[in-house]
Structure formats: structure tokens, C-alpha cells
């Protein structure tokens, strides 16, 4: 595994050497953020993306999530120099699905107020478990892109425009058989710019439910044999 990783690193390094000077080679971790849904920068799960911006900017990223995963987005903002700041600022992390529908945060601190002396502010948002299908009237999380928007929602006007640094990471937990559901979408929601997550958009066909069902069937058969042996007429010779 490590060897292969080395190999791909060497390939990447070779690619960087071959590229002409001055041409940016796509770096592994994005160091930019978009400024709107349309320009949201694509990140992978587990990747720590960074971006420099100004207080007041709306920073957008997008990441993929498949069925059965429960994504968690973490963001850390390094605030401007305390000397230039005049008061407390409230930062907020919003997550939208591929159709730009707001997604509820079930856990985590989605908005936090940083005092004038604070150096950083950390935000987290854990979504609901992504389902492979849902009724059209619901806004349950579905496989596809998830947009992350990070911004300051309340700060003294004087502090707008000061430079900040943001770091964002999306991870997810596999929710297992309890959340293994049926149905599927024709295509993941707005995922053209994204790579399929590990485990696929629709989750793996395997789930703990197979174990339970097969176990149940075996138990049923054994119990049947047991019951039969108990009641049938003992054979006499």
C-alpha cells in the first residue's frame, strides 16, 4: 500500500517537473475557496482544504457523499490580527445539498462567536445520514454534492475586509446496516465536478442486514429441526 502511494507520489512529482514553469499544477489539497454555489471548489472527503479570504467573504466548497454515510464538516477560521479588530464576530457554517437545499445540522456547533481576543474559531456540522432515495417532497440528504458555505454573519462593520484564513474538512461515518436502504436515484445530485466517494454513490450492496437475514433463516431451520425431533414419534425397533 505504502509502495503504491509512493509510486503515485513519484508520478505526481514527475508531472510537476514536466509542467512548464508558471503553469499551476493541480495541487492535491485545494488552497482556494469559491465565492458562490457555481464556483464552489471541489474537495474530497478527508481532505483539508485551506483558503485565504477577507472577513465578510462567502467561502464555498463542495464535497461528495454517498448513501449510508453521515458526513461531518469541520471548519477552523484563523481570525485577523487582534490589533486591527474592534469587536466580537459570529461565524457560521451552512451546508446545502446538490440542489442547494439547506441541510440540518444534527450535531456540532454550526455558529460560534469569537471574542475580540480569540485567535481562531472552530465550527462543526454533522448532517443526517445520506439516504439512497427519498420521496420528492422531503429534503432528506441524498447522494451527490454537498455545498459548504463559511462566512461571518455578525461582525462590527469596521472589521469587514480584514484578512482571514479558513480550513475546511469533510469526513463521514459509515452508518452500517441499520441505515441500509433500498431505492436509488437516476444520478447523484449535481455531482459533475466531484469524484465518487469510497463505497460508491449508492453505498455498497453488502450490509449487516445480509448477516441478520441469513442468520435468521439458519436459526429458523435449526429450530424447525429441533421442534420436529421433540414431537415426532420415537422410532421403536
Amino acid at each position: 500500500m505504502r509502495k503504491k502511494r509512493m509510486l503515485s507520489a513519484v508520478l505526481l512529482a514527475g508531472a510537476a517537473l514536466l509542467a512548464p514553469a508558471g503553469t499551476a499544477v493541480a495541487d492535491d489539497t485545494p488552497s482556494e475557496a469559491g465565492t458562490a454555489f457555481r464556483t464552489a471548489v471541489a474537495i474530497e472527503q478527508g481532505q483539508k482544504a485551506t483558503a485565504n479570504g477577507s472577513t465578510g467573504d462567502y467561502l464555498y466548497w463542495q464535497f461528495p457523499a454517498g448513501a449510508g454515510q453521515r458526513p461531518t464538516v469541520k471548519a477552523t477560521v484563523t481570525l485577523p490580527d487582534t490589533a486591527n479588530r474592534t469587536g466580537a464576530a459570529t461565524w457560521r457554517l451552512d451546508v446545502y445539498d446538490g440542489l442547494r437545499r439547506r441541510q440540518a445540522c444534527t450535531a456540532g456547533e454550526q455558529a460560534a462567536t469569537a471574542g475580540q481576543q480569540a485567535a481562531t474559531v472552530a465550527l462543526t456540522c454533522t448532517l443526517r445520514t445520506v439516504r439512497p432515495w427519498s420521496e420528492r417532497w422531503s429534503n432528506d440528504p441524498l447522494p451527490g454534492a454537498y455545498y459548504v458555505r463559511l462566512t461571518v454573519t455578525d461582525a462590527p462593520d469596521r472589521d469587514l475586509g480584514l484578512p482571514v484564513k479558513a480550513e475546511v474538512e469533510a469526513t463521514s461515518e459509515d452508518m452500517g446496516g441499520a441505515h441500509a436502504e433500498g431505492g436509488s436515484l437516476g444520478k447523484p445530485l449535481h455531482a459533475t465536478a466531484l469524484a465518487e466517494p469510497d463505497g460508491g454513490w449508492n453505498g455498497s450492496w453488502w450490509s449487516g442486514r445480509w448477516g441478520w437475514t441469513i442468520g435468521g433463516a439458519a436459526l429458523c431451520a435449526l429450530a424447525a429441526i429441533g421442534g420436529y425431533t421433540l414431537t415426532r414419534h420415537p422410532r421403536r425397533r
Binding site: A180, E181, G182, R209
Partner: peptide, 12 residues
């Protein structure tokens, strides 16, 4: 038209 809301209609 999912045939079942559980994966492959399996139980647990």
C-alpha cells in the same frame, strides 16, 4: 419506485 425501503428488502 423503490421496491422496498430496506436494502433488498432484507431484515435486521
Amino acid at each position: 419506485d423503490p421496491s422496498d425501503l430496506a436494502a433488498f428488502g432484507l431484515g435486521r
